[in-house]
Simulated scan of single mutants.
Amino acid sequence: MATRTVFYSFHYERDVNRVQLVRNINALEGQPLLNAQAWEEVKRRGQQAIVNWIDKEMLYKRAVVVLIGQETAGRSWVLYEIEKAWREKKPLVGIRIHGLSSFGSVDRPGANPFDKVSGVHGIPVFDPTRTDWRGVVDSKATYTNLVNNMEGWVAQAKARMW
């Protein structure tokens, strides 16, 4: 049962399958994930429509969880969501998801998106990634680690205090 309502921030095109794995844990309640067709419809209406969607979905959420994949830090909408959460003093936390399987493959770790936003500091970033004895990412062990720790990690989210 979900105990906290959160807004998930992530790179849609690259990581939506990994994000679906995170949502399936059911430790937290997040905004509905748009399918590809619905996301394209929002994008087609322009930048203000995207801003409106983000603002509406983030409005009553208690925290923002940035799911960090290989290219997340380069996504302008993720940076907007981080800036908005910081400005509104919503708790922020990062969780790396590159070690989760997407169609049978894992990714390389990406840059920390919090480092890309001026003035944002002290945000914890957790990495559930586990490797086997050869140093190869074990996506099943990574998922298990995420399941066991996600709720506790989100409880450590940090907000701007001033």
Rank of each mutant, 00 (worst) to 15 (best):
Glu71Val: 01
Lys56Ile: 00
Lys43Leu: 14
Gly30Arg: 02
Leu34His: 05
Glu71Tyr: 11
Asn26Phe: 02
Thr131Arg: 09
Asp115Tyr: 00
Val93Asn: 06
Ala38Lys: 14
Gly119His: 10
Ser102Phe: 01
Gly104Thr: 10
Pro113Trp: 01
Gln156Tyr: 06
Met58Arg: 08
Thr142Gln: 10
Ile82Trp: 04
Ala49Gln: 11
Ile25Gln: 02
Arg134Val: 00
Pro128Gly: 07
Ser105Met: 10
His98Lys: 02
Val117Gly: 01
Arg96Ser: 09
Val64Ile: 15
Val42Met: 13
Trp133Gln: 07
Lys140Trp: 04
Ile95Lys: 05
His121Val: 10
Gln31Trp: 04
Pro113His: 12
Gly99Ser: 09
Trp53Glu: 13
Phe126Met: 04
Gln47Lys: 12
Lys158Ser: 03
Val64His: 05
Pro128Ile: 01
Val66Ser: 03
Gln47Ile: 05
Pro124Gln: 11
Ile95Leu: 15
Asp15Trp: 07
Leu59Lys: 09
Tyr60Ala: 09
Gly104Pro: 07
Asp15Val: 08
Glu41Val: 03
Gly104Leu: 13
Ala85Gln: 09
Arg108Ile: 03
Val117Leu: 06
Asn52Thr: 13
Lys158Phe: 12
Leu59Ala: 14
Gln37Arg: 14
Gly104Tyr: 08
Leu59Pro: 00
Ser76Val: 08
Gly110Met: 06
Asp127Trp: 05
Asn26His: 13
Glu40Trp: 02
Ala49Cys: 11
Val64Gln: 05
Trp86Phe: 04
Ala155Cys: 00
Ser118Met: 11
Val117Trp: 01
Phe114Glu: 10
Ile82Gly: 01
Gly135Thr: 11
Gly110Pro: 03
Gly152Pro: 00
Lys158Ala: 07
Gly119Tyr: 03
His98Pro: 00
Val66Glu: 01
Asn35Thr: 15
Phe126Leu: 04
Val51Trp: 07
Glu151Asp: 12
Glu83Leu: 04
Arg130Ile: 03
Arg75His: 09
Ile95Pro: 05
Pro91His: 14
Val19Ala: 08
Val16Thr: 10
His121Met: 04
Asn112Arg: 07
Ala63His: 03
